[in-house]
Structures are given as structure tokens and as C-alpha cells.
Design a protein around this nucleic acid. Structure first.
Lengths: 352, 352
DNA sequence: CTGTTAGCGCTTTCAA
DNA sequence: TTGAAAGCGCTAACAG
């Protein structure tokens, strides 16, 4: 039975008294150091149980110099890409006895600075930067304090720390091939903000993939959005009012795709019969749309695990080699894509 | 200029030497204790800046006995209700110089126990329990250690700590009145798991509201779901195959509503023309649906703020009165609800 | 107003 | 194998 009356925090000293041993022995027993008399250890554990003792990590880590806390900086929790990442990161961190210090930057330099300060003051042992745009001077600050770093390779010029590279090409190629196989020729692309490296790469991957399947990329089929719902909404009309309109649209991220879907709905365009839509990111809510969205998935759980592992390797094994990690992407076909509508049908539709 | 070369952690002692004062004075200056010679304080701050000193919170809080860490336990990050709550809670906590220790329980007793242990070991000063079902014995454990608690008043028998009550009635009343005003009479309700107090209250509020507007609640219009997408999918068919089918359905939560919407889509039932749908919770993604979902909003930001404030009052002002906090709910009309289809039209539809 | 000193709770030499 | 004692970085008496 655990005693619940331990209203005041018990300490190693107290345990030591009750168990008639020294604090050193208590410490050894607690940490399962070999060569401790089993009898004594037993007494210690019994007392620990009776008194409801929990070690004080503040004290423990003051002396050991290791906080066992990892910083996790994300852009914003409310961006649906991140909750799964945070959850998974927490899961695995806790399994390995680390705590996480979560910070959302909300794209605000002030918040950024605050986040870095918090991380340093709490003496985190490493920081995972899972954001889409980072502040170089601040990561430099972390790096200069010998704090291990991992980040998505999305920042334009970040140099310090390990990088995780997203393999945009593969998933996007699959998506383009999928659309081509469905007979689509007029495939549009709604790009993201051009200052983000990840946007550029997605667009480049699209163009490359189109070439590979021998499809033409006419510039009127490329429009630039901003990775938001509104961006998607605005993107569609110009694409549909072309003399030869798009029959499918690929989007640089899921929110854009959702915007496109909304605009299609509001314009009476039926998805997927008259228009196929493909998203990118694989956020959870794409499953919930009507119809569920075909998208290119970045495996968030894998990403989180990889980030953690990379950090842990640096911290515990002082791995210093600069190999980049790469995370694959994959097409998930759902119900927002379908065979292209044959021209005769289209004409019928128009005249009706 | 901040020096970046401070590769080894500087300490108050070091600052003291450089500034030619004692560590006590360093501490005083840093904490802006009054009655410190401005000259000395100036020297201290300058040195702090030069050496890139950041206080070690572990040490600071070891002596002060205050960790300035708050536990935040949620059911699961991937439940779309929580990210906003977490984000807001973090925001306000950080503003007040608290750190948060996040834990998702994932409805797993093991995780629950682990969460509580983590909280105790890190010596959190308070815990916000923002979950839909809690483990009584564990909150008791926290309580017995004099850790401040706030929780949603959803657990069946939780006694310890402050409670936050959700005013289900108001929002649901608004929703029912909204539907009634649109001419709906056959209003169905998809309930949540019956063991959750929050489910029971939502259902009771629905029934009360129906009576208020003088509408009949026939038992074939009440079905029980499980707060999941699948539950919503399964709930709809029986409601539509009635001799006098539902024209509107209220759901105990948003995921259920989304499931209903999906099933309507798959059955060729047009929303909102042939069927109105109302959700509950006001999770973000309801805005993104096609059509955007009418729902009863629990103000997540307010909820998080309230939880934080309640905790802070207990911690810093030792407020001990047991007044319950109540959080209002409100109908948000979007586009999944519309005037009931007149009977003649329905007949036309059927015969066509 | 400032410095000296004694801890906070724990781990870790170093002797015994 | 165990205990005594020092010390992690900081704050808070207590003298001066």
C-alpha cells in the first residue's frame, strides 16, 4: 500500500533515516547501482513505498548536469500538421525518460526569442525545430551553447544542427502519375508562398514529374497560393475560366486543397466527377472531408520519431556525423480524384 | 552585444567575480530586488550580457521550492478539440512565467499513471485535467500531495480540486430553437457514449430544449453513437429509413456530425437541402467542411484561460473557495442547416 | 546596502 | 559494500 498521508515531500534524507542507511545508499538503491546489499536495498524500497517518496528531479538534475528535457518548437499547434507530431514526439520522449518543453512560435519573432530563452533557462539538452521557417540567429544561439539540434531542412540558410530532409519528389511523382493514369492532361498546381524552401521544392517536384510523364506545363495552370484556405478559394476560379480549364488540381498543401474544394462546392463543380483534387501533407482532417481528400502524406509519426532519435543520438552517443535524414512521402488515394470527364460529356454539361 | 563564445555555462559566481560583487548581489540585481546600488546592478547586468548568462532554473527552483511548472493533461492531442486548448494554455502560462508539462493520456491507465508520476517528480505546482474521463485514484494522489487541481466537471465522481462546468444547456437550446425556426419538427439526436457525464448532459439538454419549444421527442429519433466518425456514419441510416424520417440531426459532438455528413454524402442525401446537421464542440475543422458545419461552440481559448487562472489563483493566492467556474456555449450558424424541405418537394424527390 | 554563509535534495568522490 | 562529506547553482537569512 502506498501511504497517502505524506503531506510533506519526503527526501532521501528521510528515507535514509527510516531505513537506517545513509543517503548515499538510498541514492544507490534508487538508481539500481550494482553492489548494494539486497537487504538494504529492500529496506529502502519499502520505505520509499511507505512514505510515497518521489525523487525531486530538479535536485537530481542539478547535480548530474543533465535535465533530460528536450525542447520542441513548432510553428503553431493549431496548424493541423503539428498535433500528431507533438503527440508522437511526446510519446517516444517519455518512453525514453525525457520530458518535453513545448513552444509554438506562431511566426512571431518575439515568441521565437522567448522560446529560445525558455529552452536555455530550463537547460534543455536538445531542441527539435519542427517549423516551416526558422530564425537563423536564434538557432545559432542554441548551437553556440552546445545544445543539440534537429530541424526540417526547410529554412533557407540554417547551418547548425542535424537536418531532416523531406523527400517531396516521390509522393508528388506518385500523385502526378496517378492523375495521368486517370486521363488528366490539364493538371494545375497551386503553389505555396514562394519564400518557403519547402514550397519551392514541392513546385519543382511537380514540374519534374509532369515532364517525366510527358505532360505539358502551361504557365496558366500554375497559380500561387499561400497555404491557407483562402488561398485555395482564390486559386480555383482562374483555373476554371480558362478556355481549356483544369480537370485536376494539385495543391502545395492540404489547407489549400480544402480551399479549392470549398470553392468548387460553391461554384457547383462536382468533386471528383468534374474536378480532381490532390492535397499535400496528409493532415488528419483530410480523411474527414466530403469527399475524403486524396493527398501526399508526410508520415508525421515517423517524422517525430526520427527527430527524437536524431536528437538522442547526438546527446547520448555524441554522434556528430552530418548525414542527413530523409523522410519519405507517399500518395494516399482517397475519393477526391477520379477519371477525367470525357469531352463529349463536358459539352453536354455546358449546353444543358 | 551578446557574447556567443560562452561555451561553458556561466554561473552567478562567475558573474560575481567579473562584476566584483558577491553572488548575493548578483542574485539581488537579477531579481530586481529594491535597495541595490544602481552602479553595482549596472555592472552585474553588463556582465550578464557579456557572458551570455542565463539563470539555471533547476537551481533557482530547488531553493525557492517553486518549480513554476504546471501540468496539463489532455485526452489526446489528435482529438481535434485539444490542440487549441493546449496552444492557448501554453500562451497564457508562458505570459505568466510558467512552463507546462504536457501529457496525453490516450485513455490508457498506464499512461495515466505515468503522467501522474511525471507530474509529481517534476514537482508541478498545479495540474489542469482537461480530459473527458478521469481516473479518480490518481487525481486523489495529486490532491493528497497538495498539488492544485482544476478539471472539467465531466468525471462521474471526482471530488478533489476546482471544477469547470460547461454550460451545455445554452448552446443546445440555441441550436434547437434555430432548427425549430427553420421549420424542423423531426429533429434527431445522436448521443455520445452513455458512461460519460458530458454525454448525458448534452442529451438531457437536448430533450429539455425540445420540450421548451413544444416539440415531441420520439424515441426512434434518439440514437446512440460513440463520439467518433464511424459512430456518426452508423447513426444516420436508421434515422432516414423511418416512415417519417428525420429532417435534421443534432450530434453530441463534431466528429459524429462529420460522420453523419459523410454518410449523407454517400447516400446521396444533400446537406443542408434535404438534411440539416448540427455538431457540438466547435472544433476548428468544422469550418473547413463542405459545407461548413453549424455547431455549438465550446470556447476553447476561454476554457484554457479559465483553467490557467483557476490554477494560478489557488497557487498564488491560496484561493480555496469552491465556487465552480462555468464556461458558456454558443451556437455558430454556418451552412449545414437550412429550411426544412416542404413535403410536396419531398414527394417529388421520391417519385423522381 | 553588501557580503558571508547555510542550505534546497540529490549524486558522487573518497575513505573506511 | 557503506557512510561522510563535498558540491551542483542559486536564494535567503544574518551580520556587518
Amino acid at each position: 500500500m502506498h501511504s497517502v498521508k505524506g503531506h510533506h515531500e519526503s527526501t532521501t534524507l528521510e528515507i535514509a533515516h527510516h531505513a537506517r542507511v545513509s543517503t548515499a545508499t538510498v541514492s544507490r538503491a534508487l538508481n539500481r547501482v550494482p553492489n548494494v546489499d539486497p537487504q538494504l536495498a529492500e529496506r529502502v524500497w519499502k520505505t520509499v513505498d511507505e512514505l510515497g517518496y518521489y525523487p525531486n528531479t530538479q535536485a537530481r538534475f542539478l547535480v548530474s548536469g543533465r535535465s533530460r528535457v528536450l525542447g520542441l518548437i513548432v510553428s503553431e499547434m493549431v496548424n493541423p500538421f503539428f498535433p500528431e507530431v507533438v503527440q508522437s514526439f511526446e510519446d517516444i520522449a517519455v518512453q525514453h525518460d525525457y520530458e518535453i518543453l513545448l513552444s509554438s512560435t506562431v511566426h512571431d519573432p518575439k515568441r521565437w526569442e522567448l522560446a529560445v530563452r525558455r529552452m536555455i533557462e530550463r537547460r534543455v539538452e536538445g531542441v527539435a525545430l519542427l517549423t516551416f521557417a526558422e530564425e537563423d540567429s536564434l538557432t545559432e544561439k542554441l548551437h553556440s551553447r552546445k545544445i543539440s539540434l534537429v530541424s526540417l531542412d526547410d529554412a533557407p540558410s540554417a547551418r547548425s544542427g542535424r537536418k531532416i530532409q523531406v523527400d517531396y519528389q516521390n509522393g508528388i511523382r506518385e500523385a502526378v502519375q496517378h492523375l495521368a493514369a486517370l486521363g488528366h492532361v490539364r493538371i494545375a498546381f497551386v503553389a505555396g508562398p514562394s519564400h518557403l524552401k519547402s514550397s519551392q521544392e514541392r513546385k519543382a517536384a511537380f514540374e519534374r514529374s509532369m515532364k517525366e510523364v510527358g505532360l505539358e506545363i502551361s504557365s496558366d495552370l500554375i497559380v500561387v497560393g499561400d497555404h491557407s484556405l483562402e488561398g485555395g478559394i482564390r486559386a480555383l476560379p482562374p483555373l476554371m475560366s480558362l478556355v481549356d480549364p483544369a480537370t485536376a488540381v494539385m495543391c502545395s498543401n492540404d489547407m489549400t486543397a480544402i480551399g479549392v474544394m470549398r470553392q468548387a462546392y460553391d461554384s457547383g463543380i462536382e468533386v471528383p466527377r468534374e474536378l480532381s483534387i490532390v492535397g499535400f501533407d496528409g493532415i488528419r482532417l483530410t480523411q474527414f472531408m466530403t469527399p475524403p481528400l486524396t493527398t501526399v502524406q508526410i508520415p508525421q509519426v515517423e517524422l517525430a520519431k526520427l527527430a527524437f532519435t536524431a536528437l538522442r543520438e547526438q546527446i547520448e552517443f555524441e554522434h556528430k556525423d552530418d548525414s542527413e535524414y530523409v523522410i519519405p512521402t507517399q500518395l494516399v488515394v482517397r475519393r477526391s480524384t477520379a477519371t477525367v470527364l470525357k469531352s463529349e460529356h463536358k459539352r453536354q454539361l455546358k449546353s444543358s
